[in-house]
């Protein structure tokens, strides 16, 4: 076992030299302990002794300002969406979002609910989904290892897309929540996007 893991480490040396930043980020994911919906019941056993998420470098933190992994655990009501957006905007970049359970994907069993948003990726960018109702804690680790692959290949770029298409996201957020009480995160992006569209069109 030790021999095998030693071999793996030597294989990774190339990656460490190539992009040390990526390697550092992927092995220290700080998950935001944000209780959305019923999926949060899976998170305490995941982060504590039974499944011990720290083996994968995932550790829960108290505030969004210290986090870079956002697990949306379960259905998102309109009221929760407001605080999800606020928390997401407070997280430092690079930040990764994972939708946990079938409800953030397409509404799940709340598909005809009057107060639950159906597609989370209309409001904030999502890097990966875990399907299931509920997913087991093992699924969190599968998601984390997939996220490692995405970070390695430079595909986990949700936060860059949020920067780029901020005006569209903000428009969607205001459609559902009405007037937002906080100022736009990227104030000049809207003009930039319009000018980009003019050049492209």
């Amino acid at each position: 076992m030790t021999k095998k893991s030693g071999k793996m480490d030597r294989n990774n040396i190339g990656k460490w030299f190539k992009s040390p930043g990526n390697m550092g980020q992927k092995y220290s994911l700080h998950a935001l302990y944000f209780c959305t919906g019923c999926g949060i019941i899976e998170i305490p056993p995941t982060i504590t002794t039974r499944w011990d998420a720290e083996r994968f470098g995932v550790i829960p933190v108290a505030t969004p300002r210290q986090a870079n992994l956002f697990l949306i655990t379960g259905y998102v009501s309109v009221k929760t969406l407001r605080y999800i957006i606020r928390s997401y905007e407070q997280m430092p970049e690079p930040k990764y979002t994972v939708g946990f359970g079938s409800c953030p994907i397409n509404g799940g069993m709340y598909w005809d609910s009057y107060n639950t948003i159906k597609h989370l990726d209309k409001y904030i960018p999502v890097d990966g989904w875990i399907a299931g109702c509920m997913p087991r804690p093992e699924a969190v680790f599968v998601a984390v290892t997939h996220l490692w692959t995405l970070i390695d290949k430079g595909m986990a770029t949700g936060y860059l897309k949020y920067r780029e298409h901020y005006a569209k996201y903000r428009r969607n957020q205001e459609k559902i929540l009405g007037e937002l009480e906080w100022p736009p995160l990227f104030s000049k992006e809207e003009e930039n996007e319009k000018s980009r569209e003019k050049v492209a069109g």
Binding site: W111, G158, H165, K168
Partner: peptide
């Protein structure tokens, strides 16, 4: 009807490469 009128009316944020 409410879901169709409100939540389904909100567009996906599309990239040139596809859905973000």
């Amino acid at each position: 009807k409410y879901v169709k009128d409100v939540f389904d009316q909100i567009p996906f944020v599309d990239d040139k490469k596809g859905r973000t």
